[in-house]
Every structure is written in C-alpha cells, then in structure tokens.
C-alpha cells in the first residue's frame, strides 16, 4: 500500500511501518473525503425530482473539497503536524458528508421528505448565491438593533444593580417596581410599546433593553451584595474613599456575577429581537423569515435560520471573549 511507502520515506530511510494512529488518521481523512465525493456524485448524477438551481456548482465545490480531503489523507504522513490538526475535524467532516448525502437523497432525489417544505442543499446554495445582498442587509439590521438594545439594557441594568446593592433609599423605591415588572416577559409589552414609541425600531430597542436589563440588574445586585465584607475592611483601613469602595472593590468583585447576568440577558434578548422584527420592524432576519414565509420560499427560510444561528452564536462568542479578557484573573472556566 502506498501509505506504507510514504511513511517509510518520511522517517528517513529506515523502513518503519506507519503507526496505528497514523493509519487511523489517514483512513478517517480519506473516508471523510469519500463521503464528500459521494455527495458530489449524488448531487450531480442522480436526477432531481423538481426544479432547483445551483446543483452543478454545489457538486463541483463538494467534489473539490472531498478530493482535497482524500489527498490530505494520502499525504498526511509527510506533514504530521498538519495531519494532527486536521484529525480534530475529520470525524465531523465525515459525519457532515454523510448527512449532506442523506439530505440530498431524501429531498431532491427521492422526495422522501414532504416537498416543498424540505428544500435540498443546492436550493440553499442558490439562496446564498442569489439573495446574499438582502440577507446581508438583514444581518446588519439585526445586529444593529440587537446591540443597541443590549448595550442600553446592560448599562441600565448594571447601574440599577450597583445602586440596589449600595443605596438603601434607591432600593426602597426601585426594588418593588423591579419585582413587579422584571419577571414578566418583555414581549408582553410589545403591543403597547409599538403604540407608545415613535417608531417600532425604538420600541424594539426598549424591549430588548428591558429583557437584558432585568437579569443584569438582579445579578449585579446579588454580586455587589455578596462581596466579602473583609475586602471593604481592608480597603477602608488603607484609606479608601466611598467611590474607591464602589469602583475598585464592589464592582470588580461583583463582575463574575455581572457576566452571568449578561449571558442570561443576551440569550433572552434574541427571542425578543426576532419577535419584534417579525411583528413590526421592517428589517432584520426576523423580518426576512416572515417575508420568506409569505412567499412560501422555504429555502430562504432555512438560509435565514442558518445565518441567524451563526449571528447569535457569534454574539455569544464575543461576550465570552470579553469575559475572558476582563476576568482573566479567574481560574480557567468553561471554554465556549
């Protein structure tokens, strides 16, 4: 087998047999490549039961990718470092290749899944290829609305939380209001908010802010309240002012709690974002989904869902990065 000779050549003359690991690594890469090649073959050569564009392009891309994987598997012996890195992805690539083949077969080729509700892969490719300007526009609109609402809500929640933890008078007035309004889903305000605000856009910022602000306020508050009293004693004996106690002791000590609130708030705010876009804001991915449904363009809906999940995941990742940066003093926690 050629692999053996490749391995032997790479190990500097001595004709050692490739290790079990090397063989398994190569086999996985080749299998993954084969799955993608098969996917390309099915896409190109089996006849479609309906009309979907961009089949040949998808087949070409999948075939190229599969070929590259097979090639990488064969040459892996020469580049152990690169092969090791690729090894991390090959099980997933293999599974994806099989999944795409199955998806292709059950939709475009045999229509086992009810049509037109389950479009084939190349229908999605067609959406991305032809409708990307509108999708891109929707993503930008969604991110803009989400960030405006999230940042405003997070700031307000943070300030409210710190004030609740620090000031009795503030707590007396704000705590009951927060207990009454906080737990209610912000979406319930939606009909009123669309009337009360000058535009559905500003109403949505308010709703997203409200959704984010509540968990941030509660967790910031509990974080500030649970700061080890000994920290204050230490700081006071060293000459700390009240401002120093708030900004240099209470807030840094509460920051891990604050981030829990931010994660909860961000997660919850996505639901409000999409709902608000579906209900009134004439832009964004939620609106795109709504619009695609109106035209019964199922491929567009799946494409929008995919983009939406990437966007949400990306925003969560950004928040994790921020946390890792600000809380680098903590022992390593979960890796997102």
């Amino acid at each position: 087998m050629s692999l053996v000779s490749i391995e032997a050549a790479s190990s500097g003359g001595a004709p050692a047999l490739p290790s079990r690991e090397t063989l398994a690594r190569a086999a996985l890469a080749i299998a993954a490549g084969a799955a993608w090649l098969f996917f390309a073959f099915v896409t190109e050569n089996w006849p479609d039961v309906g009309e979907w564009g961009r089949g040949p392009e998808l087949a070409l891309a999948a075939g190229g990718f599969g070929g590259a994987l097979v090639f990488a598997g064969l040459l892996g012996g020469f580049f152990p470092r690169g092969a090791e890195r690729l090894r991390r992805y090959t099980p997933w690539l293999l599974a994806l290749g099989l999944f795409f083949t199955l998806w292709q077969a059950t939709t475009a080729k045999f229509a086992l899944l009810p049509q037109p509700f389950f479009p084939p892969p190349h229908a999605l490719v067609e959406v991305f290829a032809d409708d990307w300007p509108k999708l891109w526009e929707s993503v930008v609109a969604s991110i803009r609305l989400e960030l405006l609402g999230f940042v405003a809500g997070a700031l307000a929640g943070f300030v409210v939380g710190v004030s609740l933890g620090w000031s009795r008078a503030f707590g007396y007035w704000v705590h009951p209001v927060m207990r009454l309004i906080g737990p209610m889903p912000s979406i319930a305000w939606l009909p009123i908010a669309f009337f009360a605000f000058p535009s559905s856009f500003s109403a949505s910022i308010f709703l997203i802010g409200l959704t984010t602000g509540f968990p941030v306020a509660v967790l910031t508050w509990s974080g500030v309240a649970s700061v080890n009293a000994a920290y204050y004693d230490v700081a006071r004996t060293l000459g700390a002012s009240r401002a120093f106690l708030i900004f240099k002791v209470a807030i840094p000590a509460a920051l891990p709690h604050v981030f829990v609130g931010l994660f909860m708030g961000l997660g919850a705010s996505f639901a409000v974002l999409v709902t608000a876009e579906m209900m009134g804001v004439k832009a964004g991915l939620g609106f795109y989904l709504q619009w695609a449904q109106g035209w019964a363009s199922y491929a567009n809906m799946y494409a929008a869902l995919l983009v939406m999940s990437l966007m949400c995941s990306g925003l969560i990742t950004l928040l994790f990065r921020l946390r890792d940066r600000l809380l680098s003093w903590q022992k390593a926690e979960v890796q997102w």
Binding site: D233, V234, L238, G239, L255, Q330
Partner: peptide, 26 residues
C-alpha cells in the same frame, strides 16, 4: 493598617497591584 488572619488579597489584582492598593486609594 491591619493584617488579618486571611490574607484577603483582591483576586482580580496581581501581587503588585494588591500591594499598591493603599497608595492608590490615597
């Protein structure tokens, strides 16, 4: 100044910044 039984260092500050705490506060 007081040194307590527990060092009660601020975990978000490195050693230098913990030592600098008093000077910073003043």
């Amino acid at each position: 100044v007081v040194v307590f039984q527990d060092p009660t260092l601020f975990p978000w500050r490195n050693v230098r910044d913990n030592v600098a705490l008093g000077l910073e506060a003043q």
